[in-house]
Design a protein around this nucleic acid. Structure first.
Lengths: 143, 143
DNA sequence: ATGTATGCAAAACATTTGCACCTGG
DNA sequence: CCAGGTGCAAATGTTTTGCATACAT
């Protein structure tokens, strides 16, 4: 029940919020930019403006429903916040995004922050590279 | 000799390039946004357009003279590239930026990338938090 | 009903680009 | 001299905002 999630998050149940949450939960892709969401809405026949997409995604972020990540290239991607922290590996060629979580790295980050006299609020760790998977424009045919 | 550095980087020696490299090397602050550089130029009486600042910084990046980092808030910061890799801790309150480098984290990143079948090109690791240093607007007076 | 949400268009930012003019080697 | 560099303004791409209208409760 998507509408229940909205109520529990303290948000009024409206059509744009329902549709956007449904798209995020559809699971077709876990990481979507605001424009990805907008295009998905248009594709499914919804008449929702891009401004509303940004507003709703920002509200969802405040409500803890989604997380926003600032990838390179000056645009953000959003994903459902399942409560579990993880970092990202992004393929420079095909845009593929994979997640990982490494206890060793998390621990070292805390130690480093402490040694610099910082209270860590959060962190951003993104690995950029070329994936060796199919299909990827960078991958060599006979490789 | 700043002009020598430019020549060695394969760049024609021009006034904007000289001035911008001087500002980066002045060491007053290590991490500057394009607008920071632009303002510094204006402040020292130079008549150089913001477009040129971006062009020159991008050229410097290609030439390996500077590194560009994408911090949160949709803007980039530039710093001299001394060849040594490091990551950043940023204070959410006062904007302070500190650097660190941790062999354990670097190693784990490579291992993780390999296990995901990625050839890592580079990575971005930024810790965001509240520094406990003076002066910082967040720091409690009697803390 | 009534306060909140939405759509649209315009604004705000950071960054890039087209083009005529200027400059370094 | 002449390819390449620069300044300006206009274009770009992303995200935000003002405002009149529409909607959820």
């Amino acid at each position: 029940m998507v509408s229940k999630e909205l109520k529990e998050a303290g948000l009024k149940v409206t059509v744009p919020r329902l549709r956007i949450l449904e798209i995020l939960e559809s699971g077709r892709r876990r990481h979507l930019s605001a424009e990805d969401v907008y295009k998905a809405l248009i594709a499914s026949g919804d008449d929702i403006g891009i401004a509303t997409v940004y507003r709703v995604l920002t509200q969802f972020e405040s409500a803890g429903l989604v997380k926003r990540h600032n990838f390179e290239g000056g645009h953000s991607v959003f994903e459902l916040d399942d409560g579990g922290h993880h970092d990202h590996i992004v393929c420079i060629d095909c845009g593929r995004v994979e997640e990982f979580m490494d206890e060793t790295i998390e621990t070292r980050q805390d130690e480093i922050a402490a040694s610099h006299d910082f209270d860590i609020h959060d962190h951003s760790l993104i690995l950029y590279g070329h994936c060796r998977k199919d299909p990827c424009p960078h991958r060599k045919k006979g490789g």
